[in-house]
Write a protein that binds this DNA or RNA. Structure first.
Lengths: 349, 349
DNA sequence: CGTACTCTTGTGTACGTACACAAAAGTATA
DNA sequence: TATACTTTTGTGTACGTACACAAGAGTACG
């Protein structure tokens, strides 16, 4: 007669020992006679013992602190949704005694990152979630955390090495392919310009991977007769599109599609809207500016990288790892959501 | 000096009463002198008392049983992912002492539904999740549950009335608009056939709502010059597309787009693939058959209704309502995911 | 045979909540 | 003032786990 859930008490009774002994066996704390050990293990093998997480955590009664290290959303609005994700996760895991602390750094300033990373280590948290923008510095931080025994997860940007416990983000190569597939649906052929903004900025790998996927897809047979060109621009920190960009848009009337590999598609859209050009424009991320042009029709599709969910999942994963000692999933790839003006609202939330 | 979390013990000390009295106040169990009541309430208003859910549930130590009432996936494969969603949710909430029991009914047979609904009531669960295919019968069941005090949520199909506590699904009208927006991106104009399969089947409302959204979107100015026609077919239970359908596809070479409002787009795709027609085809749901044609290119886009997540969320919502007495969200609309061959893999799992 | 020691096992208590029950305080009646 | 009764308050215990500590069993040696 099997029960649904067994307790240490049940096991003790079955093995005819005390619950203290059972506990020692379960936690491998030694000091158990060979014979007794076997007796208990036999019972443990028979039944499927699952410790009651509620009781376990109640007993432990520890408050875990998680550090969230991300770029300042007031400097790069791409990171704005991370705050919402953090907040949502915070409410949820607060019940289980996990607290969050946010550390923001300037995404254009390496020093700012290292300073905040130092601050994190100083505060000695029980876990950390990191957006590893700067490769070298992030690697250093990961190793420091590893030494300090702080489990750490990364999101948004994958960093292949270091003491990372898990990654949450998107397959960038594949996301380039998705963009390609959209162009091949909408256009039969023609010139498509691939535009990178601020490639000197840390996330060059992002753009390269996307371009690689994009070109790979459209290079396949039967996807259309496309001519692909790549271009790099600096986005002005504020306001109007730069001169070079304006120049380019004027001098390239034959372009029938534009693929922007960053969240700055609105820069292009602004110019497109001015000239009533009917170029097909695909970009990334649900920034307010992008959304505006998506609704106007100047942007045809946006690909949603979902930083909010990335943050949310990263935090809850870490929290459950600490509180319920769930294993950390090594790699979690989020869907590459295709957004039009009509399904937009559901991704905003 | 404020603490992060207060316990009843803390409150008792602050109010200079025993924890038993605090408990009575918190749970409004009466038998507390006016004066004492005020003393405790004053403390409660000062601090933000959040009962420890772990301890609360540990004490309660009740196993909640949830009933899941869905159509038989072996009869309509659309419901297959619900099993995966159920399983995933089951693992998660099992830790909190919530058990699931599945009840499947024949989606083509009202009697089968009422029989299973009866079975659910017989088993007297602590909560229920329902796919309310049959309107009248579902309403009856909802009311029965209401009388029996069983909290119930619905998913997939919205049922505006009855004793429902919450709904999880998609905005069908809007999903029709999404399909419309995709056609307007890919085609400039021409004839688009809207095809309903098995409209006699219970989910006629689904199809009508989708068509309404679809027509509304494409009827707007500047969306293109489209000519929309509606058609109804029966899908054969097994195997080859029906004669009428074959007839239709032959006799309508001028059709440049087809919108299938159900999960049977593969029926059309099969015929399209035979004739190497280059009609634009958009349908619903990631059935194995649909996926096959999506990859081949015979289907251009699929709209993902995500029954797996619908089930998963419904169950976890109910479980958290029971175990952690979280309020049930009245209406949760999932994103209307646009799926191509390139982002497909991330929606599968 | 007693002492000192190790090895092994069992008991008690805490975590925070919820509730049963006992105890105390207050009120009414003889 | 004693008695019976109601109202109010406090204490004890359970949920299941984890760990400190006490107790018991066994061995070695003077």
């Amino acid at each position: 007669m099997r029960k649904a859930t067994y307790t240490v008490k049940d096991i003790a009774k079955l093995a005819q020992v005390s619950i203290g002994t059972v506990d020692r066996v379960i936690h491998k704390r030694g000091n158990v006679a060979e014979e007794t050990l076997e007796k208990v293990n036999r019972v443990l093998n028979e039944i499927d013992y699952k410790p009651n997480v509620l009781a376990r955590n109640l007993k432990r009664n520890k408050i875990f602190r998680l550090a969230i290290l991300i770029p300042d959303p007031t400097i790069d609005p791409y990171w704005g949704p991370c705050l919402a994700g953090t907040k949502k996760a915070g409410q949820e895991i607060g019940l289980y005694g996990v607290e969050l602390r946010l550390y923001v750094f300037n995404p254009y300033n390496t020093k700012s990152f290292t300073a905040q990373a130092q601050a994190v280590l100083q505060d000695n948290p029980d876990g950390a979630l990191l957006a590893p923008l700067f490769y070298r510095e992030s690697l250093q931080f990961l190793n420091d955390c590893g030494k300090a025994g702080v489990p750490i997860m990364t999101f948004n940007t994958s960093i292949g090495e270091g003491e990372v416990k898990g990654f949450i983000g998107q397959d960038l190569y594949q996301s380039g392919r998705v963009a390609g597939s959209l162009f091949s649906e909408v256009l039969k052929g023609g010139e498509i310009a691939i535009i990178h903004f601020n490639e000197s900025y840390e996330n060059a790998i992002h753009m390269q991977e996307k371009e690689r996927g994009f070109r790979a897809f459209l290079g396949e047979p039967k996807k259309g007769d496309f001519n692909l060109t790549s271009h790099k621009f600096q986005s002005p920190v504020q306001g109007e599109p730069g001169k070079e960009l304006r120049q380019f848009m004027k001098s390239a009337p034959q372009v029938s599609g534009i693929f922007v590999t960053t969240s700055q598609a609105y820069q292009i859209a602004k110019l497109v809207a001015e000239t009533t050009n009917d170029v097909v424009l695909i970009g990334y991320d649900l920034l307010a500016e992008n959304i505006k042009y998506l609704k106007q029709g100047a942007i045809n599709f946006l690909i949603h990288q979902n930083p909010q969910t990335q943050t949310y999942l990263g935090i809850t994963h870490l929290a459950e790892h600490l509180a319920l000692q769930k294993p950390i999933q090594e790699k979690k790839l989020l869907p590459i959501d295709i957004v039009t003006s009509e399904n937009l609202e559901f991704y905003l939330e």
